[in-house]
């Protein structure tokens, strides 16, 4: 298969793992992102993306934590600048930013450029980190009838095609490099006549949407095994959203002494 098992279940860090639910992963991820001053909207998308990836055995949480560590709290830093124009291809400069943060912006731009399902468009993003996060962003549109192809890396080449008839197909040896460094990523909206359904032909094997959905169902039934260390780091980020209660808020809250004995 060439794809990792449910990430963390094997305890790749050598430490223990903790079983968490998908909702717990979403909530802690969203709080971690919000607590790091990630632009609102991108935080929830990144949290949902983390769950999407982790529940399918793909590297979401480690990438997210990497992105959080690089994030300097400047909300405007998620903005993407145009790169040099190419022939028929829009080029963006990510400057090392993680797709955990900017994936929805990139995929939305691709869709807007194509105009409608079946329309064609191409975008290249230079120096984009954690390209895995483009998959959940594109998957949303795949469900609506769009066919999107995403490629990154060279050796190995990662390729995913999302949309009706193919949904998700992955190639390349993902076990070896769950989180490649910033690289050039190519995205394309495919016409329905384009030959994508035959799937990618990478060296490391494929995973169909059925494979990935089976993993998601397993994660729903059994929970996700996440490395202790990753979870602790996430929770630590998530605590940044918390505010100490004031005496007044405590006084005005429910269950205060004097009413609870009723």
């Amino acid at each position: 298969m060439g794809l990792p098992g449910v990430y963390g279940r094997a305890g790749t860090g050598g430490g223990g793992t903790v079983i968490v639910t998908l909702n717990e992963l979403y909530r802690e991820s969203q709080k971690a992102l919000a607590g790091s001053a990630m632009p609102a909207g991108l935080d929830s998308a990144a949290a949902a993306g983390t769950v999407w990836l982790e529940s399918r055995g793909l590297p979401g949480l480690s990438s997210l934590l990497g992105a959080l560590e690089c994030w300097d709290g400047d909300r405007s830093a998620a903005a993407l600048a145009d790169g040099p124009p190419g022939t028929g291809t829009r080029c963006l400069e990510a400057k090392g930013r993680s797709a955990a943060v900017v994936a929805p912006l990139v995929v939305d731009l691709l869709i807007a450029t194509a105009g409608e399902p079946g329309g064609a468009a191409r975008i290249e993003v230079n120096e984009l980190g954690d390209p895995w996060f483009l998959l959940p962003a594109a998957h949303l549109y795949g469900r609506e009838g769009w066919r999107i192809e995403i490629e990154w890396g060279e050796a190995p080449l990662y390729r995913a095609v999302l949309g009706p008839g193919c949904d998700i197909l992955l190639s390349a040896d993902c076990d070896a490099r769950p989180s490649p460094g910033p690289c050039r990523v190519r995205l394309a909206c495919l016409r329905s006549s384009d030959d994508a359904a035959s799937g990618p032909k990478g060296p490391g094997g494929q995973a169909s949407s059925e494979d990935l959905e089976a993993r998601r169902q397993s994660a729903l039934r059994l929970g996700l095994a996440v490395e202790d260390d990753l979870w602790r780091r996430l929770v630590s980020y998530a605590r940044r959203v918390l505010v100490p209660s004031s005496a007044e808020s405590r006084r005005r809250g429910a269950g205060v002494v004097g009413t609870e004995r009723a």
Binding site: P39, A40, G41, L42, D43, S44, A45, R75, S76, A78, A79, L80, V102, P104, L105, D108, L109, I111, A112, T113
Partner: peptide, 15 residues
């Protein structure tokens, strides 16, 4: 397009 707007102003994405 809205896509171009949020490219420049990602802070507006949620709303």
């Amino acid at each position: 397009t809205v896509a171009e707007l949020q490219l420049a102003r990602p802070d507006l994405r949620r709303i």
